[in-house]
Amino acid sequence: MMTKKIESTPFASDQVKTLIVYGREDCHLCQDMIVALQNLQRQVSFEFQVVDIDSDPELIALYGEKIPVLMAPLTNQMICHYFLDVAALDDYLGKFR
Rank of each mutant, 00 (worst) to 15 (best):
N39R: 15
I79L: 03
Q77T: 13
P10K: 12
V21G: 03
I67A: 12
A36C: 08
M2K: 11
P10V: 09
L19S: 14
A88F: 07
C27L: 05
G64I: 10
F48T: 00
F83W: 09
D26E: 12
P68L: 02
G64W: 07
M1R: 13
T75W: 01
M2F: 04
I79V: 10
L70W: 07
L59F: 05
C30I: 04
D52W: 01
D26T: 12
T3L: 14
R24C: 13
S13Q: 15
D90I: 02
V35T: 04
Q31E: 03
D90N: 11
S55L: 15
K66V: 01
A88R: 05
V44T: 13
Q38Y: 13
E47Q: 14
I60S: 06
V50Q: 08
V69H: 00
A87G: 03
I34S: 01
L29D: 00
C80K: 07
P10Q: 10
T3S: 14
L19H: 12
C30P: 01
S45P: 00
M71R: 13
M2H: 07
L74Q: 09
Q77E: 12
T18W: 06
Y92N: 04
F48H: 04
R97V: 14
N76P: 06
F48E: 00
Q15L: 10
Q43M: 01
L37E: 12
N39K: 15
I6A: 11
S13W: 14
K17D: 13
A36D: 15
C30A: 03
D56Q: 04
Y22E: 03
V51I: 15
D85L: 02
D90Q: 11
G23S: 14
E47G: 04
A72H: 07
V44P: 04
Y22Q: 05
E25M: 07
D91F: 00
D14W: 10
V86N: 05
A87M: 03
V69L: 01
R42G: 02
E47H: 14
S55K: 15
A88M: 05
D32F: 04
F46I: 06
D90S: 11
I20E: 11
Q15P: 02
D85R: 03
K17V: 13
R24K: 15
V86R: 10
K66L: 06
D85Q: 02
L19R: 12
A88H: 06
Q49Y: 02
L40A: 11
I53D: 10
P10A: 09
L62V: 04
I6D: 08
S13G: 08
L62T: 02
D52T: 04
L74F: 05
G94R: 12
K95Y: 02
L93P: 05
I20F: 11
